[in-house]
Design a protein around this nucleic acid. Sequence first.
DNA 1: TTGGGTGCAAACTATTTGCATTCGA
DNA 2: TCGAATGCAAATAGTTTGCACCCAA
Lengths: 140, 140
Amino acid sequence: MEPLVAKPNLAGHLRACGVTPTQQRLIISELLFDKRQHLSAEQILRKVAHRDASVSRATVYNTLNLFVDKKLIKALIINKSKVFYDTNVSNHHHVYNVDTGELVDVCADHVVISALPPLPSGIELEGADVVIRVRQAPVA
Amino acid sequence: MEPLVAKPNLAGHLRACGVTPTQQRLIISELLFDKRQHLSAEQILRKVAHRDASVSRATVYNTLNLFVDKKLIKALIINKSKVFYDTNVSNHHHVYNVDTGELVDVCADHVVISALPPLPSGIELEGADVVIRVRQAPVA
DNA sequence: TTGGGTGCAAACTATTTGCATTCGA
DNA sequence: TCGAATGCAAATAGTTTGCACCCAA
């Protein structure tokens, strides 16, 4: 098994974003940034346990909130029951299957937001999230 | 004060949607369908109390879920902490101020979703929700 | 050394559920 | 009458917090 010590670039990445690279944050980073994916806090907790390592529940939540704050990941509020964290921070949207819970990325090019009413002064755009909800077609 | 007995059209509306018009459901309907608005379960509970009437917490939640099911209202999953219910069921989107929690409707004409990848067979579109997140501009 | 980070457990919030009672048709 | 709806309280799930201990710089 690969050592739990993270690759140097991960630590550098965290530091570059103003995050002190602690052991726990590196473990979580390794799991997260392995690939583009959508994970819940619970899933991350389980993955940590799977790797023999151990990070407390509170630390997982604290870390995820910190990463969202520092824009290392995006929080997706799609399902009323839990938040998903997206390692793809580029501009994109989602297709969500309400029956299976499956979540798929959609390139932002496929979505055009036009003629948005002008924002009042003092208000600035933070982002636009598009969730396309789909379901299993009834067997008819 | 107006009687708590609902206007006949409300009861009719519920019935037309396959919902038995009980006292509690009529009280909630009156509050909801008074105008286009976005309310949380908690806010509805408070409004009920304000009207001298009383509907239990469980019934408020059950009723809101039922109404969403029957498409009398729409559930908005925008804020991680609570669901908002929208009495505007027509096709439209939302501007959400992350600082104030304010939620404003945007006509669907202002949002164009194009070139969506084709859905796999057996999957059908349920809807597309667009949330434009804005924030207070820093005073700079 | 020392302030930020972590772990644990307890607290908290929104929501759901089990079950006995009541109501609508 | 009788199944559906309601109310209450307890359960649940996700997330946050308080505080003592520990580690990165």
